[in-house]
Design a protein around this nucleic acid. Structure first.
Length: 325
DNA sequence: ATGGTTTTTACTGCGTC
DNA sequence: GACGCGGTAAAAACCAT
């Protein structure tokens, strides 16, 4: 219910701290007006400081993080280990202690030795399961990072996602679920919690899990971890749609206004936030005399034209009959 | 599992360029 | 004739019970 975000966003936040990023060839100049580009960490956007153009840069660097200038150097820097097997959770890299109390020659062990072996087993098991969680976490965090950068989600979201994942891991929610699935669900939850949501479709585009598993896993961890996540605010989708359709700030403002009006009237409940946002953008473009087709909007929002039609009709009705803005 | 609600799919007619 | 838009009916998806 916080309606406090009444001011139009200004993209002027300076953020020079990102020096560790590999800047191999990223252009830092706006393609429109050749102004300086800035990284808006909070909203996960790269934005021009002059004209406000949002440049969505989905590029992910998949190359090695080191550089080599000759083959000798490449050999010394490349890190490749012994072949591993995927059959074991730890890829066969850990110690195994047999259960039989025999030594290497098949002779039975003395009781003193047996006790000793038992203790070793216990401790080995403890370390190994801790290791497996560590590996699990490492892999999941890698996935979270990969998806977050593909979706242009800011660092803060990745951090909350990893916190959520750690909690899921800690509460043993993983068995029976894929790492990838839980990682995706955690990131989805984090994005929504941060008020920077991406639609399920956007997630399934970059995740290896399908929509059904994602929603199922998401519901599960939300319930088990008692996460409190309010329905996504339609307004949070507006900037990205506007940007992708190359519409003006004027349209963005208008769309937000329409959505607020709709929210006051209460007729937004039960409707998909993405659909509302898409319809608002379309209606706003209409009001501002900027041309977009319903199918274009539907495309970037992953929403059918019919839904846009229905929603935007309602939105405009409210605008006429409702209170003056 | 079921029923109610919302969204999508598919199809149609109309006007315009 | 292709395109954008509006409408409709039926199917599908979603959600709470």
């Amino acid at each position: 219910m916080s309606e406090s975000e009444s001011t139009i966003r200004t993209y002027t936040r300076e953020d020079e701290s990102e020096t560790s990023r590999s800047q191999r060839e990223s252009s830092t100049v706006c393609p429109e007006c050749s102004g300086q580009l800035l990284t808006d960490e909070e909203h996960g956007e790269t934005v021009c400081s002059d004209c406000g153009l949002v440049v969505e840069d989905d590029a992910v660097d998949r190359g090695p993080e080191w550089r080599a200038f000759d083959s000798a150097e490449r050999d010394s820097k490349s890190r490749v280990g012994a072949p591993t097997t995927k059959m074991m959770h730890d890829k066969g890299l850990s110690t195994n202690i047999g259960w039989q109390n025999k030594d290497a020659y098949g002779k039975s062990l003395s009781s003193r030795q047996r006790q000793q072996m038992q203790r070793l087993r216990t401790w080995n098991e403890r370390f190994r399961t801790r290791d497996s969680k560590e590996r699990n976490l490492k892999q999941a965090l890698g996935e979270i990072d990969r998806m977050a950068s593909a979706l242009g989600l800011p660092k803060t979201v990745r951090e909350t996602a990893s916190v959520i994942y750690r909690r899921a891991l800690g509460e043993n929610l993983l068995p029976g679920r894929s790492i990838e699935g839980v990682a995706t669900a955690a990131l989805y939850a984090a994005a929504r919690q941060a008020g920077n949501p991406r639609s399920l479709d956007e997630f399934t585009a970059v995740s290896r899990v399908d929509k059904m598993e994602l929603t199922r896993t998401y519901r599960y961890i939300v319930r088990e971890l008692k996460l409190e996540i309010q329905p996504a605010d339609p307004e949070s989708y507006v900037p990205r749609f506007v940007s992708r359709l190359e519409l003006s700030d004027e349209v963005e403002r208008e769309a937000r206004k329409l959505l607020r009006g709709a929210k006051d009237t209460g007729l937004t409940s039960g409707k998909s936030p993405v659909g509302l946002a898409a319809a608002a953008v379309y209606a706003a473009a209409l009001l501002s005399n900027e041309k977009v087709t319903q199918s274009q909007v539907g495309d970037v929002a992953d929403i059918s034209e019919v839904t846009i039609r229905n929603r935007y009709k309602e939105l405009l009705e409210i605008d006429h009959t409702g209170v003056f803005n």
